[in-house]
Amino acid sequence: MKALVAVKRVIDYNVKIRVKADKTGVETANVKMSMNPFDEIAVEEALRLREAGIIEEVIAVSLGVAQCQETIRTALAMGADRGVLVETNAELQPLAVAKLLKAVILQENPEIVIIGKQAIDDDCNQTGQMLSALLGWPQATFASKLKISDGHAEVTREVDGGLETVAIKLPAVITTDLRLNEPRYASLPNIMRAKKKPITTTTPEALGVDVTPRLVVLKVEEPPKRQGGHKVGSVAELVDKLKTEARVI
């Protein structure tokens, strides 16, 4: 069996983002970029399945500008076997990403597709669900535990009320939640080794996918700022302020 993971290049989660003055988007020039944290969890899970002998190969796919190569290299350094870059300068929205991933999947035939539950830039939380719909496959979103046995997966999901476990047929799409695993760091030798692993490049045109955005971004603005920073000196003062000033208790 093969596993395919999607890895998105996003602004690093530690960066305090800045909205561009002309309101067209967020400043990305000279900003640290990293792999979407949920996708690191996806790569880790696929590697563990390979180490457990359940799958043979892990393919990492990224979609976007040429620099997404670096994100694929990170996945390869963690241990993925090879990469696929769908290169484009066009803005990609989840529906287009799902269609492109579907096209790659139809070429690669993986039995398990693991992707992040949410990209921390667009906060969409859509791609995995869309991809499984387009493929006609089952979906197990927000996974915190994954067990694979003879053509099935048993997946525990993080839901609002607690945990829910579902059984799905393979092939399937699984999206990762934070508690699924703790991703490994790439060691220096593995980073060196990753430089020799193959990455094939394709394009939306070659895959026959129209990626025209369906949502037009009219503007991007900063949210209203909160005025905070007041301190109180004691518990008694706090309770007093909450009762008489804020009137919330």
Partner: peptide, 23 residues
């Protein structure tokens, strides 16, 4: 935009060939 809404609606959107507007 609960875990059930987030789980369901993108699947619906894709089947209708439309983008979801999240959250």
């Amino acid at each position: 935009a609960t875990t059930s809404g987030k789980n369901l609606m993108p699947r619906v959107a894709a089947l209708l060939d439309v983008m979801q507007i999240s959250d």
